[in-house]
Amino acid sequence: MKKHIISSWIFSGVFALSGILFSGNAIAEEYRSSPWQMGFQTPGSESAVRIFACHDLLLYIETAIVVLVLLLMVYIVIKFNAKANPVPSKTTHNTMLEVVWTAVPILILITIAIPSLKLLYFIDKTEEPEMTLKVTGNQWYWSYTYPDQDGLEFDSIILEEDELEAGQPRLLSVDNPVVLPVNTNVRILLVSNDVIHNFAVPSLGLKLDTTPGRTNETWTNIDKPGTYYGMCSELCGVNHGFMPIQVRAVSKEDYAVWVEQAKQEFAQNGEPGSLPASGTVKIAAVISQ
């Protein structure tokens, strides 16, 4: 197992490097986490860019607060230990100080709240959707429906380890990725067939529950072609950790071509919402792992 980890790190490292060297190349980029990563994934949409930027602002403020407290503690330890300061002071009140450490945090919070609330309203919904994608959570796979494309619908199921091809990441790859065009306002509607799931793609700034009895709405507009990965982010039962999300973003032209192919490929799926037999078999296989 160890050998496997190390080789996968090396592989990912080489992969990341090639991504840097050949950026702008036709090879579609992979948007997922990398080994020893300490920050966010590379953003792939305006929402993600804004979320990460807003967090950067916060991180400066919070780091400053932590460093301030740390310095105060170090100073206290050095100056006010029993040896250095044998006679304790009797000070127990300082109104000015107390007003300051109440008022200053309020100002800091207002500084945080303004960009934060702007962000919240930006990422909420799109007023001008150019297309709609319906995402259905199931135990334990996702179904994607394209209402604008005659109800094109298919299931997206995790690839087991022996099904992975070279370069396909474990636990993140699926048989049928959801395909979306770039530079398009996509309205995403989320529903569930059983329990609560959560459709999350970190690099696109997407995360929303699929709850039975409700239709939740969010949106995305993907910047660049590439593959964007996510995982179910609400505990949904035994195989919660095994229902990944793989979004393949392509140019509008490629998308149009894909839609026609997909309509034929998934024609046998029949009525929306019905569970294809192949899906059931695969789920059983995953469970029995």
């Binding site: 934060s116 990422i123 959560n198």
Partner: peptide, 10 residues
């Protein structure tokens, strides 16, 4: 912050 919590929730 609800906006940023999107990146962190769960």
């Amino acid at each position: 912050n609800a906006g940023m919590d999107l990146a962190f929730h769960d």
